[in-house]
Design a protein around this nucleic acid. Sequence first.
DNA 1: AGTTTTATGTGAAATGGATAACAATGTTTT
DNA 2: AAAACATTGTTATCCATTTCACATAAAACT
Lengths: 223, 223
Amino acid sequence: MSSETLKIPQATAKRLPLYYRFLKNLHSAGKLRVSSAELSEAVKVDSATIRRDFSYFGALGKKGYGYNVDYLLSFFRKTLDQDELTKVALVGVGNLGTALLNYNFLKNNNTKISVAFDIDEAKIGSTMSGVTIYHMDDMEKVLTELGITIAILTVPAPFAQSITDRLAQANVKGILNFTPARLTVPATMRVHHIDLAVELQSLVYFLKHYGVNEVEELEEVEE
Amino acid sequence: MSSETLKIPQATAKRLPLYYRFLKNLHSAGKLRVSSAELSEAVKVDSATIRRDFSYFGALGKKGYGYNVDYLLSFFRKTLDQDELTKVALVGVGNLGTALLNYNFLKNNNTKISVAFDIDEAKIGSTMSGVTIYHMDDMEKVLTELGITIAILTVPAPFAQSITDRLAQANVKGILNFTPARLTVPATMRVHHIDLAVELQSLVYFLKHYGVNEVEELEEVEE
DNA sequence: AGTTTTATGTGAAATGGATAACAATGTTTT
DNA sequence: AAAACATTGTTATCCATTTCACATAAAACT
Ligand SMILES: NC(=O)c1ccc[n+]([C@@H]2O[C@H](COP(=O)([O-])OP(=O)(O)OC[C@H]3O[C@@H](n4cnc5c(N)ncnc54)[C@H](O)[C@@H]3O)[C@@H](O)[C@H]2O)c1
Ligand SMILES: NC(=O)c1ccc[n+]([C@@H]2O[C@H](COP(=O)([O-])OP(=O)(O)OC[C@H]3O[C@@H](n4cnc5c(N)ncnc54)[C@H](O)[C@@H]3O)[C@@H](O)[C@H]2O)c1
């Protein structure tokens, strides 16, 4: 059970990067203070939830005043380890992988795709946005050399599991999985699924079956 | 108004497309029946949760036997409106938008990006993967003509809100938002955020602070 | 200085969802 | 056809998260 940081709820942890991003916006805009109500309006999270989230880290605000933007910002910078660059690998430089490669995650998070892998000879050896694309055969070697423990997976689904097994061997601890495959991993690894087809399909389902609030007020009908 | 389909929990609704996808796999593989335990192994959802999810739709299985793959598949096809093609629009044909355009959502869901919009004159009028790219000026007109009510948003963040307002005017009801902006929408609309930077950053946070079961001897997943 | 306003931090309650456990019931075996 | 077996559907329980609501304290105003 690691870490000094007492375990905050996962739901809270997922919102931290969001808070951080908007605090940076506020800072750039020259704002000196912010209330949970204002922040709520910006990030679309209930203000009580924001206060509760912040409270896990102690008393960061002042009653009757709100939160000091600079203080909060530097607190979250530390909490999110934004002083240290996090290097990640990209596996599969196709349509989606290329889009991710060209995106500058550095700008907002201190995170960078530092290396990429593929099997397409046409791509291997070249660089995209300054990132070298290596052959899959060299994956384990390069990853361990660079000490990379996080990978983004954008290969065709049938290869996802076997590549995941190799990543596990290479000491990778986290995978951002864009393939539709549901990966089996050792308990020491963590996978975040970003399943675009599911997102799209479930949005369709919600719209068709939850008929967005059209009649909202009328319903009290408990069955 | 929200349909005869009693309102199932949102968490369940989000899993339906996943179940559907794996049932199709099973069907293709020639499987005739499946138990909640088998399905659980495949989709990585607890078997009790699967049974609970299914039970919202009535008794779909048989005790001592499991579920008939064909029956379940056709039931979910209907439930997910997979007989009817759902047309969606793409706004912003850049790095990410292009990747999405080139992806065939039709293959798995009966969903298709049918039209795209941009402001880049170099792209306007051309087609990508058979999809015509129109000028933003024509957006409202084209959307209402085609009766499209779902849009994927992949434009630079500063434009996200104003375009969203226009989409709302054009009777769009659902947005799949890839921009880091948190959109303000009328109560009649639904937004699903896919925030790639947040996903990546929160994965990093979890790995650093939740120290994935390093020493704790968690036994392997059953099998 | 005193009063009013503002907004935090947090107990308590409400909501929403996941899981354990098992009786019920059908299937398969002998 | 009876016994053994498998697996559902569901009840009860648990857990995580959200939200309410307000005492508290600082800030702003007069
Ligand atoms: N593009 C999208 O919008 C989209 C949407 C939903 C899901 N996905 C999923 O994301 C994944 C990637 O999609 P894509 O559109 O970028 O596919 P793609 O075919 O364009 O790219 C796949 C890349 O992986 C490489 N590759 C193939 N086999 C490999 C292997 N064994 N090892 C390493 N690299 C290998 C290919 O050379 C190619 O560069 C797929 O699983 C797809 O289902 C993509
Ligand atoms: N590419 C990624 O991997 C990635 C990752 C995280 C977030 N995002 C977000 O997704 C969005 C798109 O990213 P991208 O990398 O594709 O950007 P991009 O710059 O490659 O593409 C943006 C596209 O939008 C078009 N556009 C600009 N202004 C427009 C307007 N007013 N109306 C219509 N179209 C307009 C541009 O012509 C361009 O084609 C951005 O908000 C970005 O922050 C992208």
